[in-house]
């Protein structure tokens, strides 16, 4: 770590940008070159100062973070970009990734994590938040089956009754639903399986050994 990591902070929230800047100044291996508050100013600053890394907010006036990043990456592909955003939505992270970001962090991150990610990215690695784990199903053994046909738990439950030859009225009583609701579920099961007769549904149940 002979040469410090040169950094430009791009954020239109001056309070946050200043806070960030003072935090980084304490680190000997980091050097904040400039703070800019919009995308255009950022492009100019990158052009003039050629930083190692940009800490970039998404929502900014004149030119937003994502668009500014696209242009920086075109002109200076070597400049690393770490997105710092208040938004944690997956599609925004995906958008940042596809526009060339090297990392993505939520603004309310810890100091340690922030510093670690900056160093990681400066060293040429990337860092993105983990994807949220998929919903845990209570029917774990039938997970694949459920997923394959997009059945809900309820629909899977009804399939069991249908297999036993229950009528809609009987099912309704057994699961404490109205007949209309059972009918709707049954209709949707058929729709999801692309079937159009009760016989075809029975055949499907037997063939799949439910």
């Amino acid at each position: 770590m002979n040469t410090p990591i040169t950094i430009i902070i791009a954020d239109d929230h001056s309070l946050f940008a200043e806070g960030l800047s003072t935090l980084l100044k304490d680190e000997k291996d980091m050097n904040v070159l400039a703070i800019v508050s919009n995308g255009r100013a950022l492009i100019d600053a990158v052009r003039n100062q050629q930083p190692h890394l940009v800490l970039l907010d998404i929502n900014m006036p004149l030119l937003n973070g994502l668009d500014a990043m696209k242009r920086i990456k075109q002109e200076y592909p070597k400049v690393k970009i770490l997105m710092l955003s208040t938004y944690g939505e997956e599609h925004l992270i995906e958008a940042a990734k596809s526009n060339g970001a090297n990392g993505y962090l939520l603004k309310n991150t810890n100091k340690e994590e922030l510093l670690q990610v900056i160093r990681l990215i400066a060293a040429g690695q990337s860092s993105f938040p983990y994807r949220l784990s998929p919903v845990i199903n209570s029917f774990e053994k039938d997970d694949n089956f459920l997923k394959k046909f997009n059945f809900s738990r309820r629909e899977f439950q009804l399939l069991g009754f249908i297999k036993q030859g229950f009528t809609n009225a009987q099912i309704a009583e057994a699961v404490h639903l109205s007949i209309y609701t059972v009918e709707t579920h049954r209709k949707n099961i058929m729709h999801k399986l692309n079937l159009n007769s009760p016989t075809a549904l029975m055949k499907f149940i037997l063939e799949n050994g439910l």
Binding site: H13, T22, L23, D26
Partner: peptide, 15 residues
């Protein structure tokens, strides 16, 4: 605004 400010406060506290 509020989110960024809270983040700034957090940074400051950690300092």
């Amino acid at each position: 605004e509020l989110g960024s400010n809270l983040a700034a406060i957090k940074l400051s506290v950690q300092k």
